[in-house]
Design a binder for these strands. Structure first.
Length: 625
DNA sequence: CGGCTCACG
DNA sequence: ACGTACGTGAGCCGG
């Protein structure tokens, strides 16, 4: 047994690394004592990386257990006797703490220790969830951050070592890249061991401090219970994953690579050797006489830093294409703009989607995209590796690669205009509530109020744009740019909107004042704390609406859990839930999901509509498979 | 690693 | 005093 010790904030700690099977005896005795006294024990795992499912056996290297003063580390990769001891401890301990437990370690334990997500999550407290309930912002945004290091510095000891950064420095000294360091650093490296032990000591000490802070801030306990449950449901979705059509994806990858190369060669003929270099592209286009002025605008388009802008909108205009890539015959198409556009799209779709799918597939042909259930500052979820919340929706090509299970079909269930309804509910917008209750199309209803009974399709578009704009906190200029309508008309329409829905502006003002009186933190109706940036307090409307809409999804997931529907769920996508169900049960499952996503929010009906597709996700976007 | 671009809701 | 479009993940370039 190797011994480490140290001190944090004047409080000593001791850590022990199990080296031989005999060393497991003191570990077991310690675990029994913790279990008997029902002392919370922090658990952490060290792995070869983040690909829990695609890596294969040997992924889990070390497992650590610790309370506020004592910790043990087990060398899982040294043999099954250690795996079994870790699994036993995880099962017998009545109260565990993890940092990002449901987001990572619960999945690792489930897959590599054989202790299920359901079993551990039922008794786990996640310090990352607690921390986000105090402040959801990342460090970049002015928050505490949700990493163990940042939280420890604030809540435990400013001098607590940065174990992540420390490890990266070790990797560097061993001439290992960061990505391979976690897999290749020798298990008996003293810093690897010491930091592994420290992580559970820190997590243990963090928990009571975070719990006290939450209590002091008046954050309801039920909110924490709810978030732990949502996190567990998301973990269950990650575990089941989705089937990847590998043959299709390999072909897709080749086709996209071919297209990217072909159009890159065309661009090279105009002197652009790298289509992803905005500098090269703008220079070449300038040389061809392009002025970068879009129709209806007087000045060239520029980026924030003042350079000429050659983004998709600009290039599509130059290539004489509309937003759907159809020729508009308004000018002579610029062949370079066209080639750059197509090469970039094919290249991005190949690398961000096709490559990513194939590098994340497990031995059983499934991908398990990671869901962080409260990632955004509004608590919206995010999905990574691969980012399947952001697959192209205008073209079925990419979504076609993801399949329902064998014998299943895909079901997609969307909330209907959920953010508009949430706004109506939160701001108590009388006329909107009447329209929603009557089942009217909200944007047409608004268009009628703003433009009169004879409103046109164009007017409806403007009304829709203003609706979004109000939810985002936007002004006339951006709304005009988005809708393509002249700014004067948009200004008039926005003034009229404020007249017909006076509650929206009034509520926004009240929310800003409330937040101001609460140290710049808005509190949603579920109790989520939403910190505002001092210079962007107008964002309060968006934060409250976006966060409450997110809780509509969260509440629906909990209801679906009660209804036993979680095994069918595959992916949350903000206002949509993707599911896979046996063909013969699809109607029933779809109806049940729809029911769970239908409820009343402060007198406003929140409603959802399910769509049943074929086997591939792409089939819901008009494909034939 | 910041800037830019682009994919989604 | 005034007005401000919101939230993500990912890849590439160039310093």
């Amino acid at each position: 047994m190797r011994h480490y010790s140290g001190s944090l904030n004047g409080q000593p700690w001791d850590g022990y690394v199990v080296e031989r099977p005999d060393d497991l005896e003191p570990f077991r005795a310690w675990v029994r004592r913790q279990a008997e006294s029902r002392t919370p024990v922090a658990v952490d795992t060290e792995t070869c990386g983040l690909k829990i499912y695609a890596w294969g056996p040997g992924f889990l290297r070390m497992a650590q257990f610790g309370n506020e003063t004592d910790a043990f580390a087990l060398p899982i990769e040294r043999g099954s006797v250690y795996t079994e001891a870790a699994a036993w401890a995880l099962r017998i301990l009545p109260d565990i703490t993890g940092h990002n437990w449901a987001g990572f370690d619960a999945l690792v334990s489930d897959e590599h220790l054989g202790v299920s997500i359901e079993e551990t999550c039922a008794k786990a407290t996640d310090t990352q969830i607690l921390a986000k309930l105090i402040d959801p912002r990342q460090k970049m945004e002015g928050g505490t951050g949700s990493g163990l290091k940042d939280l420890s510095a604030v809540y435990i000891d400013p001098a607590a070592p940065d174990t992540q950064d420390g490890l990266k420095a070790v990797f560097k000294s061993l001439k290992l890249k960061i990505a391979e360091g976690f897999a290749k650093i020798p298990l008996d490296h003293p810093i690897y061991q010491e930091y592994g032990l420290l992580d559970v000591i820190l997590t243990s000490r963090l928990r009571p401090r975070l719990e006290r802070t939450l209590e002091k801030l008046g954050v309801p306990k039920r909110l924490s219970v709810y978030e732990h449950r949502v996190a567990r449901i998301c973990a269950q979705m990650v575990r089941v994953g989705m089937v990847l059509d590998e043959d299709y994806t390999v072909n897709l990858q080749a086709d996209l690579a071919y297209d990217a190369d072909r159009f890159a060669e065309l661009a090279a003929g105009h002197g652009v050797t790298s289509v992803n270099s905005p500098r090269q592209v703008t220079e070449a286009l300038l040389g061809m006489g392009e002025d970068f002025i879009l129709p209806g605008r007087s000045a060239p388009e520029r980026t924030d830093s003042g350079a000429l802008k050659a983004d998709k909108a600009v290039l599509q205009f130059m290539a004489d294409l509309d937003r759907d890539w159809k020729p508009i015959r308004s000018r002579k198409p610029n062949p370079l703009a066209d080639a750059v556009l197509r090469s970039k799209r094919a290249g991005k779709w190949r690398s961000a989607y096709a490559d990513n799918f194939l590098s994340n597939v497990d031995a059983g042909g499934r991908i398990h995209a990671n869901v962080q259930s409260m990632q955004a500052r509004t608590f919206r979820m995010s999905v990574t590796n691969p980012a399947v919340q952001t697959l192209p929706s205008g073209d079925k090509m990419i979504r076609r690669a993801l399949l329902a299970d064998e014998g299943h079909v895909m079901i997609s269930t969307d909330f209907q205009a959920v953010e508009m309804r949430v706004l109506a509910a939160l701001a108590d917008v009388k006329r909107m509530k009447v329209a929603i209750a009557a089942g009217e199309d909200l944007h047409s209803f608004t268009a009628r109020l703003v433009f009169g009974d004879n409103f046109t399709d164009k007017d409806r578009k403007v009304a829709k744009g203003i609706g979004f704009s109000k939810v985002f906190g936007g002004g006339a200029a951006t709304t005009a740019r988005q809708t393509g309508a002249p700014i004067e008309a948009v200004q008039r329409a926005m003034a009229k909107y404020d007249q017909v829905y006076p509650e929206v502006g009034r509520a926004a003002k009240d929310w800003r004042i409330e937040a101001f009186n609460n140290r710049m933190v808005a509190v949603s109706i579920t109790g989520h704390r939403l910190p505002l940036d001092r210079d962007r307090t107008y964002a309060v409307t968006n934060y409250l609406v976006q966060s409450t809409a997110r809780d509509c999804l969260g509440q629906s997931l909990v209801t679906m859990d009660d209804a036993g529907l979680v095994p069918f769920l595959r992916l949350p996508i903000h206002d949509e839930v993707l599911a896979s169900a046996p063909k013969s049960d699809a109607q029933d499952v779809a109806r049940e999901i729809q029911r769970c996503m239908t409820f009343n929010l402060r007198g406003v009906p929140i409603e959802a509509e399910a769509e049943i597709g074929l086997r591939s996700w792409g089939s819901l976007y008009g494909a034939d498979y």
